[in-house]
């Protein structure tokens, strides 16, 4: 049973992000077909209108495109576009939060850089 859609953010945002991750990780290839909104709805037990809203976010960003009567596909260069997009929010989403936590724990910048370089 799948119940991932309850981290508090709007469900359509989580659907869009889920598809983005699949593209970034390569499990959805460029020009490959994306599951239908009904399949998303059944899999996650969400309203099909919500699933469609999530998919449409990505259509509007040019990540997915629609072939009439056939379905939804991943656009060319979608991965590149997504990497650019995620990089823009990487600092705010990950680095800023890490710096705040480090400050709370009195971890110096130097120690932090050390951790990153050593990978532990």
């Amino acid at each position: 049973m799948h119940e991932p859609m309850n981290d508090g953010r709007p469900i359509f945002v989580q659907i869009a992000e889920h598809i983005e991750n699949e593209i970034l990780e390569g499990s959805l290839a460029e020009l490959g077909q994306v599951p239908s909104t009904n399949q998303f709805a059944a899999f996650y037990k969400i309203n099909p209108a919500t699933a469609a809203k999530g998919v449409n976010v990505l259509v509007n960003e040019g990540i997915l495109f629609k072939k009439r009567g056939i379905g939804m596909f991943v656009a060319e260069h979608a991965r590149e576009k997504l990497i650019e997009k995620r990089k823009r929010t990487f600092f705010k989403d990950y680095v800023a939060a890490m710096l705040r936590e480090a400050e709370k724990l009195d971890i110096t910048k130097k120690a932090l850089i050390h951790m990153i370089e050593d990978g532990q």
Binding site: M1, T37, N38, A41, A42, K45, I46, N47, P48
Partner: peptide
């Protein structure tokens, strides 16, 4: 859980 799953699947179709 079966009820919700079937409801959404059948509603979609």
């Amino acid at each position: 859980s079966i009820f919700y799953e079937e409801l959404i699947k059948d509603y979609a179709e």
